[in-house]
Design a binder for these strands. Structure first.
Lengths: 151, 151
DNA sequence: CGAGGGTGGTTGCGCGGTCAATGATCTGTC
DNA sequence: GACAGATCATTGACCGCGCAACCACCCTCG
């Protein structure tokens, strides 16, 4: 039995995956740096606040948050810990399931999100959106939505 | 001056970015877990070994590695530290620039890469490639290559 | 050739994330 | 109704990565 060779990184399919990987790494790093420098906020923080801002009652259960953010449960716990320490989010215990907790966006959190948005949107445009022709942008989204559908 | 509202996560352009973000998080998490469980190896390790395997002389300068992997310099240093500890890579000092180091893939490292490849390729296919029609795959790649071009 | 600024790589430190284990609660079953 | 097994969230231990500071060395220019 002959040894299987190492798959070439130039193979078109594999290359597509790796391009995806690297494009993400590069853009994320850049955005993270800018958001941290100008707004003292991480990308994950921003995403969480944004999701809460557009959820019913500006709140979501911990596990929903974890799932939505593609984060582990403990990751969600600690993220909320930090944001709660900054009073951007508060925990509200759930009355229909005593194990549960709501993460609720405070007014301060909403303000913080609003304040950080211009910086972040500018970064997303500069490092990502503006490098992609409009026609390709929609295709990209629909392609990746397919990937995102839960297995 | 009226307060600017928080940008809607449903805005098409923003949504494209966020889909990209989440698709990556989800797929990466899954692949990382599988590779760790079945091959005791992280995604970053695999990528590094792969890149070295297809580099001239199976070696690359530390900074080239960092740039290629979209990693910080210190990140590259520590990654190589770990792989060197497992004898998958060795450091070779550069004779034309005494500050420099080559990261050189050992035979053991190549074997390790080869051994891990089936698992990883299967994962990439299952969680990413196979969810994308062939026609869209090429488009995805060329779109993201544009993003990846250095600024 | 000597000084000064630039570059390659490593290190200290802190943050943010995972996994595994835990406690509390819910839910289905006999 | 009580027990068994799932589920919600948290905690402890650990790890990978980034930034900033640092040292060693290169290179250019006066």
């Amino acid at each position: 039995m002959k040894p299987s060779p190492v798959p070439s990184p130039r193979d078109p399919r594999l290359k597509a995956w790796r391009t995806f990987l690297y494009a993400h790494a590069q853009v994320r790093r850049q955005l993270e740096r800018e958001l941290q420098a100008e707004q003292s906020m991480g990308l994950a923080d921003y995403e969480l606040l944004l999701i809460l801002a557009y959820s019913d009652g500006r709140r979501l259960r911990m596990s929903e948050l974890a799932d939505t953010l593609a984060l582990s449960r403990s990751g969600a716990t600690r993220l909320i810990d930090r944001l709660e320490a900054d009073a951007l989010v508060e925990r509200v215990s759930c009355d229909t399931d005593r194990r549960g907790q709501w993460a609720h966006l405070t007014d301060g959190g909403y303000e913080r999100l609003r304040a950080a948005s211009p910086t972040h949107l500018r970064g997303i445009a500069a490092h990502f959106l503006d490098r992609i022709p409009a026609s390709e942008l929609h295709a990209l989204r629909s392609t990746l939505e397919r990937v995102l559908e839960r297995a």
